[in-house]
Amino acid sequence: MAFVEINNLIKRYGSLTIFDGFDLTMSSTDRLVLIGPSGCGKSTLLRCMMGLEDIAGGTISLGGDPYITGAERGKMTLDKTVQKEVGMVFQHYTLFPHLSVLGNLCLAPMRSRGMGKSDAQDKAMELLKRFGLGDRAKFYPSQLSGGQKQRVAIARALMLDPKLMLFDEVTSALDPELVKEVEQTMMELAEAGMPMMIVTHDMHFARNIATQVVFQERGKVIEAAAPNDLFGNPKQDRTRDFLKNVLNIEG
């Protein structure tokens, strides 16, 4: 059984159908990178997996547990204990601006996991040091660079020991010179064996970090393969066209 399994996912925004029977699997040793044209539903997919979107059909499973089951009418069912094993990092950091870095990291473990304050702070400091942010613990988000904010956001998600991490274009809002530090943090996580699903427009980074690349278009998987195959020798015309386009734009 696959670690992540998405079966027959149906997602609509009003009358706009984003997914009409979408399937995807991922093993626990994978780092899956999703690529595809703007508006094809990459963010929507991650948001559905995080439980942020109501889905109209299908199931999403983690470790064999279907934790989200869509319903055509009425509310989908969501298993909150499994949902808590998924962590997500967003494009625009979404740190809590009124809390210090330490406060951002400790809020969820203390208030929803019942962790003691000193335990939470110890754990937070350990993570911050690991990411080279040890001296920023007392700072507020507004006093950090974009790259630092995003690394804090990653650390905040890791405080809850997720079994799967979702990254939605986490470097897209950053100045070019700050992209590296965030990508390095993600590479380090990858080496530590964290299963991840990553949406990015950076094809070089995709090639470096991925074990699987999925090219998606209009709510469908067009091609899924190992990075060397998908980038080096794409099987589908549409994949080839897409790559030609983005690689041209990137120069």
Binding site: L52, V86, S112, R156
Partner: peptide
Amino acid sequence: IESSQHDACIALGLPPTVRTLFV
């Protein structure tokens, strides 16, 4: 307050009361 703040709360598994009072 941006909806992304609510998203972040859900992603961190914060219960609704904690979300309201602390965020």
